[in-house]
Design a protein around this nucleic acid. Sequence first.
DNA 1: AGGTCAACGTA
DNA 2: CGTACGTTGACCTT
Length: 922
Amino acid sequence: MADRLAPVSDVQPTADQTTALDTASAAPPSGAAPARLLLIDGHSMAYRAYFALPVENFSTSTGQPTNAVYGFTSMLTKILADEQPTHLAVAFDMGRTTFRTERYPEYKGTRDETPQPFRGQVPLIREVLETMRVPVIERENYEADDVLATLATQARAAGMQVLVCSGDRDAFQLVNDDVTVLYPIRGVSELTRMTPDAVRAKYGVGPERYSDLAALVGETSDNLPGIPGVGPKTAAKWITAYGDLDGIIAAAPDIKGKAGESLRAHLDQVVLNRELNHLLTDLELPLGPADLAVQPWDREAMHRVFDSLQFTALRERLFAAMPGEAAAPVEAGEPVDVAELAPGGLGGWLAARAGRTLGIDVRGAIRPGSGDAWGLAIADDGAAAVSLDLTTIDPRDEAALAAWLADASAPKAVHGAKSAWHALTGRGLPIAGVVFDTEVAAYLCHPDQRSYDLPSLSVRYLHRELTSGAPAAGSQGALDLSLDGSDEHQHAAARAAAVGELSGVLADALADRGATDLLARLELPLEDVLAAMEHRGVAADVDYLRELEKLFDAQVQTAATEAYDVIGREVNLGSPKQLQEVLFDQLGMPKTKKIKTGYTTDAASLADLYARTQHPFLAHLLAHRDAIRLRQTVEGLLRSVADDGRIHTTFQQTIAATGRLSSTDPNLQNIPIRTEAGRQIRRAFVVGEGYETLLTADYSQIEMRIMAHLSGDEGLIDAFRSGEDLHNYVGSRVFSVPTDQVTPAMRSKIKAMSYGLAYGLSSFGLSKQLSIEVGEATRLMDDYFSRFGGVRAYLTGVVDEARATGYTATIMGRRRYLPDLTSDNRQRREMAERMALNAPIQGSAADLIKVAMLGVERELTARGLRSRLLLQVHDELVLEVAPGEREEVEAIVRAQMGSAAALDVPLDVSVGVGASWHEAGH
DNA sequence: AGGTCAACGTA
DNA sequence: CGTACGTTGACCTT
């Protein structure tokens, strides 16, 4: 079945969605169903959530507790979905003192201080509400319940149906035919509807008498004592008998028995209770019920907030429950007309769109070196699209497609161009002319996110759901087996259209951030370089790797046996839990640093324990750790060797928030080098057949040089210009001795501090690392800064500026936004400050080597050399050099790396060559 | 099956 | 109480 194409679609959903939203946000027309107002006691519900959900299960990776935010938002989501309110507001208490505490200082006096982890979450809840455009109402001196009571009363008078969600039973007095209280039974997920009947069933009196009953019985949580010996039963009986509290008071002298006596003894308290538990319904408020219509959400802000809270599933649920959204057709969001082309018609279709940027979507396998593409959709900016099955494509169409794809002057927008490159190259369809990559563009806009998948970007920037078909080639290893069926084509076309449309929106966002060139001139061309590097792979010596595996395996066995002998039993040495048992219970060793699951057994602590106890078990355990990790690394590499005898890593371009690349599958950026045994592994990376040697080139002290440049510190700049050893030079200034009298101990201290500065190292941290007193570390840092004052000024300046602008920027203008710089939470704020210190330095270094890679690739191509880039390890490039090209390649690499940017300090590059990575290293 | 943690490798 | 990553096995939950 050739060229089966999807049918024409005429879905026009955008207008529908807008309509739905507008309807929801306006007051309902008269004669329609009555407006439904939802009023939430923010504080009491959040507080309930806080205690209902274990905080240890609800925190972000930065340590911010989120259990109250999660519970509150989850509760809100559920109510929105269940009740579909047309109007909505949340009330908060303001401070602890109110007119009630003035009247009765003991009011709520038994309550503990609100826990800090809870208080820190209230601003986050307000942030969530703000992005949802939910009015937050509060009034000094009054409680949230008074606000709710006032609004409920006003709303009822205006003919609205009212839901009051509160964890405070006092709200029951508001219940009537138009006002229902949603009261949490257990935690925050189960709410019971308190209607007049429900109140009567539970308390034996109607809601209008609930306050009387509560006054008699008391309310422990408010610290309002009731009448001793009088429970809800007796209270209800009296209310039924005497009508209301006034009736009871009037009849008090005649009430018999112990309860009667007790009542008479506590009349004052009862009257006070009644006065305090009465909710005010006549507060003056800035907003009335009519002002509380549900508003369209600030979706982009919500995504930002939910990203930072790391609520992925909850976000989906919340969007699904969005008011008005439910009315929109589910299939909405794919305004694409998929053209039915006659066989051979693609060339005409493309020609009719010559010069226009077309969005494309590639389906296929993206394994570097062995990719394949089997589906391709192309969409224009008018949402006309074609979707092609590449496995059955008409030869004329295939030729037209190949020509268009390879035409560098035919502009294309792609989501994940490097992945598309692998898939298409595998099918013999090289791609050129990519002028926009929505994935990379989104990354440049918000580099702190973990993924930039197309459906999320669609929701976020196009405000449109992208119904999921099979994933595009952008998702690693995705296999699409259901090529048949027009749905597949429709989805593919919708993705292509979304890519095209997103490229416009994101281009604007990039321009706002001054990052247009960063994408067009750096990241986009780099994708081709990276794709080629991944495609080439690096040759591996498999036989040698197998030998290493055997060697390390033998070491693992030996170490394990010896360890078992010492303790007289076999345990799983890889289990921290079992190790803790052996070390601290069986062997009774001193406790190490505390971690979540007990006490750490990390290498530093074990080494420390060994120094103190000399226990042989520790030595064997450490040897086992080393050997097992080396074996693991070798085994991982062996598994990664492809059929061509080479290892093809994937360089991720949109992961590291600083702008660095990362390497996965396998990670070739963390191959051991520090220990001799580890370095053996580098011997397995060898020059491939047909090539003469490997060449490595690395920047020396790139981050310190960038710090020198950015800070403009004359001392540090002179240090680099002098050509002397950096740490000796700095050490001589800090310790006031001649350069040749800087001892190795002094030098290593200086080295640690210099590097630490770029990470926001504290004197405490420095003292830890150097095993010196904090005072000495502080003095060391003071001495350093007294000689290199420009560095200190720069470091404080960079944080100040980031706080003011909201972001840091690298030499190439790459931004990282750090909203936590103004956080109330000290831990988060200080973390953000360290990120702000480091991001410009690490990020500028990343910029430089990317520029250098483009230059190297360009020169090698321009000169027709066969030598080629293989790997990048942050400040190092690894190349495979063709016979006879070594000198020229070295010159190119030195020149391109050295001139990647014009800094106030030279960019030194050291180069090594050899048959393996180990030998080429230095 | 899927997610998180501790541990540890790199720059 | 030092930044940026990725991978692994153990452990726990679904």
